[in-house]
């Protein structure tokens, strides 16, 4: 059963593992669950996060300075896993996963019941050619990203590949954390994309920085993913208030 299927609109928070402190995840995850977040995306820090804007780049740099590694992330998750009931998603770049070993990575994801894995620099073509069979063997579901300019046919293929998880809609061509407004043309395209995804849930992320933007996402998609804006609030120690407003 797809854990992202819900009649209720979903809100997801993205956190970088190892930020602001090396062990922050072990307290942050239970707190987010308690506040009513529907699922959590956990970012694996990388030295060269090409798809990320300044906020997430900075959290990645801090996390690496704190000594965060993929192995440590799995250990931290194992420690708190039994208290977390909401789905967990891992998001990161391909290279740290390859050095850890793709099979080993998938095995640990499977043991920890990770609901989905997003590797933005692994294209669907590379996934099909090299990794699909391993993902399937370990029962791990991938998520891929689409943007409003992704061709229809490709959106349909991606939605099918992601039928065990969700499709990640980046609302404009941008790196993470870049604010924008959702105009009429975009709204129409979002509605088309929602149709093209059929039964696979479609969540809007990148640049969702307010309650208002979340509401707009709810209009056209099955949920919203908030990363940079939340991490910025964590950095400023205003995350309590931010969450309160976001989850209103």
């Amino acid at each position: 059963m797809n854990p992202f299927h819900s009649t209720k609109k979903q809100v997801s928070i993205f956190v970088t593992a190892g930020f602001p402190e090396r062990d922050s995840l072990t307290t942050l995850l239970p707190r987010l669950q308690q506040r009513g977040v529907d699922f959590i995306e956990i970012g694996i820090p990388f030295s060269d996060p090409m798809a990320d804007g300044p906020v997430i780049q900075e959290t990645s740099t801090v996390a690496l300075k704190n000594g965060m590694t993929l192995g440590l992330l799995f250990d931290q998750l194992a420690e708190i896993r039994s208290s977390i009931r909401i789905p967990l998603v891992l998001m990161g770049y391909l290279n740290p996963v390859l050095q850890y070993g793709m099979e080993h990575f998938l095995q640990r994801c499977s043991e920890l019941h990770i609901a989905s894995v997003i590797l933005p620099d692994m294209s669907p073509e590379i996934y099909e050619r090299f990794y699909r069979s391993s993902f399937e063997r370990f029962g791990v579901h991938p998520t891929f990203i689409v943007t409003p300019t992704t061709p229809d046919e490709r959106v349909q293929q991606i939605a099918e590949t992601c039928s065990g998880s969700f499709v990640y809609l980046v609302g404009q061509s941008s790196v993470t954390g870049k604010g924008y407004s959702i105009g009429e043309a975009q709204q129409q395209r979002f509605a088309e994309l929602k149709q093209l995804c059929r039964a696979t849930p479609l969540f809007l992320g990148f640049g969702i920085d307010s309650q208002e933007k979340k509401q707009q996402a709810f209009q056209f998609c099955d949920g919203a993913i908030v990363g940079s804006a939340f991490l910025k609030a964590v950095g400023n120690k205003t995350d309590q208030a931010f969450l309160e407003e976001l989850l209103m």
């Binding site: 060269d48 090409m50 993929l70 770049y93 391909l94 290279n95 740290p96 390859l98 050095q99 620099d121």
Partner: peptide, 20 residues
């Protein structure tokens, strides 16, 4: 050692965690 950076698989100077 073999690694992925800037969208290609090649030889890459990196640590054991895959950080460049």
């Amino acid at each position: 050692t073999p690694g992925v950076l800037h969208g290609s698989l090649t030889l890459l100077m990196q640590d054991e965690d895959g950080q460049v």
